[in-house]
Design a binder for these strands. Structure first.
Lengths: 149, 149
DNA sequence: GAAACTGTAACTAGTATGGTGGCGGCTGTG
DNA sequence: CACAGCCGCCACCATACTAGTTACAGTTTC
């Protein structure tokens, strides 16, 4: 069932960082607190986001994390892609099927095409929402739901 | 990473059954052979498909499986939905986040909305392809790729 | 009754997950 | 310089789900 909750952690962390001005560094412990989770877990996810150029870290005392580009330019797909390593959501056969069966001979490649298309549809939908978007909606809700889109 | 390969098994089995006329029962061993897998595993998946009215089984000697409705009316989404129990592809947080943080207070429900929309997009794409469609393409390929759509 | 099926339960081994502790290295402050 | 605060990373744990297998009870045909 399901992929992992890393994408949720990633989006949470990104939105958390989007609250603050750039150069206003936030330590992983603060983010972990908001997630009610562990700093190490947060750093694992943030490390992946950094590898994709979404956030940057500053070491040492007073260090922490910040967005590496404007929140408008970071979509949920970026977060998903950074964090959910390659593996497709819908995996084809565990073992390749029998090559001596008409179905088996073609099913795998056909399934890969269909599943890839389905995954692309999912990612395209994720790409429609940016981190800035998430933050805006949170702020709307916080001051009483005038609803933005 | 990923869900399970049950959907792949389900689509394979459905397409396999679509090869034959209705009332031409196929035993799970034959399907398992095409998958190069185990009859029990196949029956587990077929059992789920039967629960959703996609296939039907006849017990006893000479028994087996058949499609319960025309292959045109069975889509990959039907197979997916029957086999991949409820759990969303993109899970939200493992632990609910901190309620004392502005982000934490709203992130979960916002994520659920976004993730549900993304999953729906994926399922809608799966719904565009029927089992009949899969079989047709396999037969096209088998006789030399005149390509059908 | 034997043979050919479905239907289930119980078990294994492998793998990914969230979570935790420990430790080294970097950096700003006093 | 020492220290505190922070990142980066490794090793480890318990849990859960996976594919695959064995075993066996029930049902039907011959």
């Amino acid at each position: 069932m399901s992929v992992s909750s890393r994408t949720a952690v990633a989006v949470h962390a990104l939105t958390f960082l989007a609250q603050w001005e750039a150069d206003d560094l936030q330590p992983s412990t603060d983010i972990a607190e908001s997630l009610e989770s562990n700093p190490v877990l947060v750093r694992r996810v943030l490390g992946l986001l950094r590898d994709k150029g979404l956030v940057s870290a500053v070491e040492g005392s007073g260090g922490g994390w910040q967005l590496a580009k404007p929140a408008e330019q970071i979509t949920l797909r970026d977060a998903y892609a950074a964090v959910e390593k390659g593996a497709p959501v819908l995996p084809a056969h565990a073992h390749p099927p029998s090559q001596s069966c008409v179905i088996g001979r073609h099913m795998q490649s056909l399934l890969e095409v269909e599943f890839a298309a389905a995954q692309r549809a999912m990612e395209d939908r994720l790409a429609e929402t940016s981190v800035a978007h998430m933050l805006r909606r949170i702020r709307d809700r916080e001051r009483g739901e005038p609803v933005s889109r």
